[in-house]
């Protein structure tokens, strides 16, 4: 399997004007890993799929603001 959030720690200068963000995150969406979609992948129930934006569980990767919710944008 794969993860859809990656982290890195940028260099922090002792002279930075703002409080440093020590860990930066970025998104690596599922479409980077699946290649040509193989047959018979698991699906969401139809009504759920309409709301989620995809029929295929493997491609469902919702994004939440790291500033707003308890579900962090870094996927943790």
């Amino acid at each position: 399997m794969f993860t859809t959030r990656k982290q890195y720690e940028p260099y922090i200068s002792p002279f930075d004007p703002c409080p440093p963000i020590r860990v930066k995150t970025y998104v690596t969406a599922p479409n980077l890993y699946v290649g040509f979609q193989p047959p018979n992948l698991p699906q969401f129930p139809l009504r759920e799929a309409l709301m989620k934006g995809t029929l295929w569980q493997v491609f469902y990767d919702p994004y939440y603001s790291p500033y707003e919710t308890k579900t962090k944008g870094d996927g943790s």
């Binding site: 479409n31 995809t54 990767d61």
Partner: peptide, 12 residues
């Protein structure tokens, strides 16, 4: 979030 998910599918 729905629109963003569609972008992922389109890129796929």
């Amino acid at each position: 979030r729905f629109l963003r998910e569609r972008e992922i599918i389109h890129a796929q």
